[in-house]
Design a protein around this nucleic acid. Sequence first.
DNA 1: GGTGGTAGTCATCTTTTTTTGACTTATTGA
DNA 2: TCAATAAGTCAAAAAAAGATGACTACCACC
Lengths: 103, 103
Amino acid sequence: MTTTKTDSTNDSCPAQALLKMLSGKWKPQLFKLATISPLRFNTLLRQLEGSNKQSLSVALKELEEAGILQKNVIRLRPLHIEYHLTEKGRALTPIFLSLENLV
Amino acid sequence: MTTTKTDSTNDSCPAQALLKMLSGKWKPQLFKLATISPLRFNTLLRQLEGSNKQSLSVALKELEEAGILQKNVIRLRPLHIEYHLTEKGRALTPIFLSLENLV
DNA sequence: GGTGGTAGTCATCTTTTTTTGACTTATTGA
DNA sequence: TCAATAAGTCAAAAAAAGATGACTACCACC
């Protein structure tokens, strides 16, 4: 069984999944904020007007699954969680900036 | 009427619209194919398995409106139309490739 | 044992995107 | 003028993404 099925959706375009993931609602903002400082859930919820728990939760989880953000639990009084850029996330930063410059 | 409304969706993230546009279904493939040779409608329809007229039509139109592709009418026997990269589209190419290398 | 803060989940509803299939326009060669 | 090919459009349905509001878990302090 060699390659019989032509999966034109993904085969030909490795960037597709990454692009789609990056472009989901709130994701570009989250990524950009993360290049500045680690993210915290309720802070984001207040910061990003019009956002909501569910969407942020999903967005953060997907950025995490894509290996762009990493979750850190911080044992403080009311228990904090911080999301910060991974190495892959940092590698993405200059690409993101050149995209912005193109606009 | 100065800026009263805080449009946090776009203000803070110039790349967002471009990312969203680029990530629509079929768009990354169309872009990538266009970096190789000009695109033709029915050829794409056969080439991209699972695609359909409507989606390709919309995708091509949006890539055109975004200034990435340009439409050329070629007066041949059954009338051909070619979509080719604009300068902006060519500027995007290296960014696209670095995205692919990141995956 | 009740209150308050952080960080969520869950079911449901709404909105946006994508697909389907029938129909349209333009040109040309027989 | 009829058939064939290229390049679409349009209305409707289906699927995916996003929003809403209620609820949960964990800890600490009073």
